[in-house]
Design a protein around this nucleic acid. Structure first.
Length: 735
DNA sequence: CATGGCCTATTTTTT
DNA sequence: ATAGGCCATG
């Protein structure tokens, strides 16, 4: 690009956001019209391109911010993107339609809820809500929960929804029916139907519904569809390889009029097939848009040569992949290191010891490190080891604040006020605090709802017509209370109403009176929640400060979103949640058969290939160094079991016993002293120049726990041992 | 109707 | 290891 000075002076000034882009990136950014697909290898500047492209559209006045729709998979990615666009275009960025698929669709569905027969502030059921609902339905139908396994059933429902198979068409489909028979679940269709009916009557949508109903709006409400097709002139889809059928159909429909759709993805990083993601969408895109422009970003700017090589090596073992050569001209860096531990406990200590040593040796900060694992429960040992060493850390994922029981309970209160047909929320709170309403009364109520075909709220507010007894009196009081709050919904903001409910419902008092340590924490959590509602209201200057709006927003928050960014802490998370991020040093732990690859994924080749892509994602997060660890034994289900090193290690020629890392914790990483050792570009035999001693030749490299040393033979003074952290050695070209 | 103790299944990943 | 379900008891 900017090759000579003459070029700069004769050409118009280049927009600041285009500076520093390579040739391919520039094409991807500036060809804004028509369908285009960007295949972006790991670390190839994907986000940079996507944000520059949006900025370009705005700067060239091709569209106003609210005519641009940009969809990501995580809130984090959306926030990051908005931030970076803001740096280029300023406040305009605020008006972009930019967010996760789910959060953007909630906003649209809220506007169009009436067309679907849903209340404006419909409830959103998270996976836990879905689970407990399904559990109840399985019970209601007298099905054996050992055959109709919760996770299996839920997964199947989710899968059907993501493939746009309604309960009716599911029941009519011979193939699905045959599968169900094989799995001894002949009544699955019925269960699916009931589940959908329940949600619709409760005015609730689960995560999949947000997509399914968005699809429904676009494909069955022509006028509404036209409106949005006209509105969105430019569409941007991040992590395209992880889209499923509904998502693809939605964006396809939205792009139908203007055809300005840009999808960015990397087939090598597709790790969500388990929730319906279909890499085939990349093929479908090229087929559905024959005039598309395709750009492949193959230069990696993130990682060292060693890391890029290893990553390429990993992915080569997969048969199904797009042709792509990721390369880098970064320095060679250090080889991937392997740590072997005797037990899971020792593994965690060794990793933590290694972090401390690396930090000291290179003058790093905690933020440089991430510990990645396959399953959330692996975090435990590492947390303890980190705590013991007083190392600050944060965990992303796992049990989030909003999944705590007291928080879910209170949110259920608020949800029921906003949507009094939400039966799940009702059941959750009717006896919080105790109101003497038992299972029998509840059963009667739900039978009535079912038989009369009335809404839950109708039955509750006319209960005297149907039932008598002490419970009825209690419910009448409860109903009166809920009504009194509901009357204020349009008048008062979320915070005012929430604190009112907390006090007047007796919920806060109940928590307050529990003086155990856990009770105290629960009380604090509730206060914390109320604070966050206050914040929500304060920040909702020109948006909707209502309780309904808060509840919908909060349903889509995941842990890690609101987390303390910028603090100097070690990060712990699953490989799935690290996607899209980068760290200087990556510790990939628990590299054992049946754990990674997971025992659940050994059954089929496609599953195994997804695990391998997961491995690829983990390794490519690192800028400088990857350290992989495994243990020879591990506690599973409270029992000690022996483990085998992962097959993936052999695939990248990291033989479990190749490196003589002593396995004694916590002073674990003893000196490695090998003739083929390299430190960056420095290796035995390298010619170097030292400020005092002049030219010399490296005869030995020593890697101790917290120091790098080099033994150099200088013609002037003979052998000297130098500490690489201090000594400034200049590498001379080899002759 | 609520509580406490014992039993069992559970661990794949997330919006 | 631990959470949730089931049963017996208050």
């Amino acid at each position: 690009m900017l090759n000579t000075k003459e070029q700069i002076s004769t050409q118009p000034p280049i927009a600041p956001y285009l500076i520093g882009l390579n040739e391919k990136q520039t094409i991807a950014v500036t060809h804004t019209e028509g369908p285009s697909i960007v295949i972006a290898g790991a670390g190839s500047g994907k986000t940079k391109v996507l944000t520059a492209r949006i900025a370009h559209v705005l700067k060239e006045n091709k569209a106003t911010p609210n005519q641009i729709l940009a969809l990501t998979f995580t809130n984090k990615a959306a926030a990051e993107m908005r931030h970076r666009i803001e740096q280029v275009v300023g406040d305009q960025a605020k008006a972009l339609w930019l967010g996760t698929f789910h959060s953007v669709f909630v906003k649209l569905l809220r506007r169009e809820a009436a067309a679907l027969g849903y209340p404006t502030y419909f409830s959103i059921y998270d996976s836990e809500d879905s689970k407990s609902l399904l559990k109840q339905l399985i019970k209601d139908l007298n099905l054996d929960d050992k055959v109709y396994r919760l996770n299996v059933v839920l997964g199947r429902i989710s899968h059907a929804k993501n493939r746009l198979i309604s309960p009716q068409s599911y029941a009519a489909d011979a193939l699905y029916q045959a599968e169900d028979m094989k799995m001894r679940m002949p009544r699955f269709s019925e269960l699916y139907l009931r589940y959908v009916q329940y949600c619709s009557r409760a005015g609730a949508m689960d995560f999949d519904d947000l997509l399914v109903y968005m699809h429904k709006i676009l494909y069955t409400h022509t006028e509404l569809c036209k409106k949005y097709q006209q509105t969105f002139r430019y569409l941007f889809i991040d992590e395209f390889q992880d889209t499923n059928l509904v998502q693809y159909k939605i964006i396809q429909k939205l792009a139908e009029v203007h055809q300005n759709i840009c999808v960015v993805g990397d087939d090598a990083q597709s790790i969500y097939a388990f929730r319906g993601a279909d890499i085939q969408n990349i093929l479908h895109f090229t087929r559905d848009y024959p005039h598309h422009q395709m750009v492949k970003l193959e230069q990696n700017y993130r990682s060292t040569q060693h890391i890029v090589d290893t990553a390429n090596h990993i992915i080569q073992h997969n048969e199904s992949q797009l042709k792509k050569t990721v390369w880098t001209d970064n320095t060679q860096g250090e080889p991937i290191q392997l740590v072997k531990a005797m037990s899971d406990l020792e593994e965690s200590r060794m990793v933590v010891a290694s972090i401390l040593a690396q930090k000291r040796k290179h003058g790093l900060v905690y933020q440089d490190f991430v510990i990645l694992y396959r399953t959330n429960n692996q975090s435990r040992n590492f947390e303890e080891a980190l705590r013991k060493q007083n190392i600050p850390y944060r965990i992303v994922g796992g049990l989030s604040f909003y999944q705590r029981k007291e928080i879910k309970d209170f949110l259920a209160y608020l949800r029921f006020v906003v949507n009094p047909n939400d039966a799940s929320s009702f059941k959750r709170i009717i006896n919080l605090p105790k109101r003497g309403v038992g299972a029998v009364t509840l059963d009667k109520i739900f039978t009535l709802v079912h038989e009369k075909g009335e809404t839950l709220w109708h039955v509750l507010s006319h209960l005297e017509q149907f039932l008598t007894g002490a419970a009825v009196v209690a419910i009448r009081r409860f109903v009166a209370f809920i009504s009194s709050v509901a009357d204020q919904l349009a008048l008062k903001d979320a915070y005012t109403l929430a604190s009112y409910v907390a006090k007047e419902s007796g919920f806060l008092k109940e928590l307050y009176e529990d003086k155990t340590i856990e009770g105290l924490t629960r009380y604090e959590h509730l206060q914390e929640l109320l604070n966050s509602i206050k914040q929500f209201v304060d920040h909702a200057a020109d948006t909707d400060p209502s309780l309904g709006s808060f509840l919908q927003e909060v349903s889509l928050i995941t842990n890690g979103d609101q987390d303390n960014v910028g603090e100097d802490v070690v990060t712990l998370m699953t490989i799935h949640s690290v996607k899209g991020m980068e760290f200087n040093h990556v510790y990939l732990v628990g590299m054992e058969e049946e754990l990674f690859p997971s025992a659940m994924m050994l059954g089929s080749k496609t599953d195994l290939e997804e695990e391998r892509r997961l491995f690829y994602v983990a390794v490519t997060r690192a800028r400088l160094k990857v350290i992989i660890s495994y243990a020879l034994s591990r506690y599973r289900f409270g029992k000690l079991s022996h483990t085998q090193p992962s097959r993936f290690l052999k695939e990248i020629n990291l033989e479990p016993n190749a490196l003589s890392v002593t396995a004694t914790a916590p002073r674990a990483l003893s000196a490695i002293n090998r003739s083929d050792q390299t430190f960056g570009d420095l290796k035995v035999g390298s010619s170097v120049k030292h400020a005092h001693f002049g030219e010399g030749k490296v005869v030995q490299l020593v890697d101790t726990e917290d120091l790098y040393k080099a033994v150099v033979f200088f013609s002037s003074v003979g052998k000297k041992t130098l500490l690489l952290h201090y000594a400034k050695l200049e590498l001379l070209p080899t002759r």
